[in-house]
């Protein structure tokens, strides 16, 4: 079996080949060629698309440029979710590359948060880390860190520096051995079947009898419909980082190895393809 450390690397370096196309109704001065990028799963759309913006700016008039936003098959893409979550949730059944449409007009105010600068992404990212640590350690680890430590986490993500990020992030992953895990597991369960964007509850990694809680236990409690009954065909896929982990996997292990850099375990529940 591969070293668990390798899992962290594999998660960090996950990439999605993507084709960005300008929305047909945008006014251009000459034809806008599509733009191709390998997107890091663990990053944020607005953090890694400077080149996309520059590419399309070249063919557009200054006065037609408003805040850039993205859409996939009619769904505005929320930049504040990690890229991998957006792909798993909305596009995992499609052929690659992932075709994203780029807009510079008609910002969907009811659907998307504004992202005027990278500092907004940084604030969102650090806010998630803080919230995760509130669940894991009552916020004690993140509050004991210095400002430069917070900066190291952010710069690690922004500059795609695995070692820089993990040298600090490992502190957020520690827990007292005798407790067998964090206080609560920071997780979010996403699905597209209702308006509610995600489910988040308090869930402990270890049962009161001392057993390790599994992914199956978590779903049974929070989203029971996702678990197939004995004789039933699988209705949903449970996806993290593009894979379907075994339901027997302990949630503590998942939290330590398959969490995004924001320290949350993002779980997508998507309808199983009916073939």
């Amino acid at each position: 079996m591969a070293d668990d450390k390798d899992v962290l690397r594999d998660v960090w370096f996950g990439r999605i080949p993507t084709c960005f196309t300008l929305y047909q109704d945008e006014i251009t001065e000459r034809e806008a060629e599509p733009f191709y990028l390998l997107l890091p799963r663990v990053s944020y759309l607005t953090l890694v698309t400077d080149k996309v913006k520059k590419h399309f700016h070249k063919v557009m008039r200054q006065e037609d440029l408003e805040e850039m936003w993205f859409e996939y098959e009619g769904t505005p893409l929320k930049w504040h979710y990690p890229i991998g979550v957006l792909f798993d949730l909305h596009a995992s059944n499609t052929a690659l590359p992932w075709n994203i449409t780029v807009h510079f007009k008609d910002f969907p105010e009811r659907d998307l948060l504004h992202c005027p600068s990278n500092s907004v992404i940084e604030a969102h990212f650090m806010s998630s880390i803080k919230e995760a640590d509130a669940l894991k350690h009552k916020g004690q680890v993140v509050n004991e860190m210095q400002k430069k430590d917070h900066k190291q986490l952010w710069m690690g993500l922004q500059n795609d520096k695995f070692d820089q990020f993990w040298a600090m992030n490992r502190k957020l992953m520690e827990y007292p051995t005798e407790e067998g895990g964090f206080r609560y597991i920071p997780f979010r369960i996403y699905q597209t079947m209702s308006d509610r964007p995600f489910i988040q509850k308090l869930f402990r990694p270890v049962s009161s009898e001392g057993h390790a809680h599994t992914l199956g236990d978590l779903l049974k409690e929070v989203f029971p419909a996702a678990i197939p009954q004995d004789d039933e065909q699988k209705k949903y896929l449970i996806v993290i980082h593009g894979i379907e982990p075994l339901l027997e996997t302990p949630v503590q292990w998942l939290s330590e190895h398959l969490s995004h850099p924001d320290n949350f375990l993002h779980i997508s529940i998507i309808p199983a393809p009916s073939d």
Binding site: R110, D111, L112, L113, H124, D195, R196
Partner: peptide, 12 residues
């Protein structure tokens, strides 16, 4: 004050 997704209705 920051803009944030409403966790129950998904709007900004």
């Amino acid at each position: 004050i920051t803009q944030q997704e409403h966790p129950l209705i998904g709007q900004p």
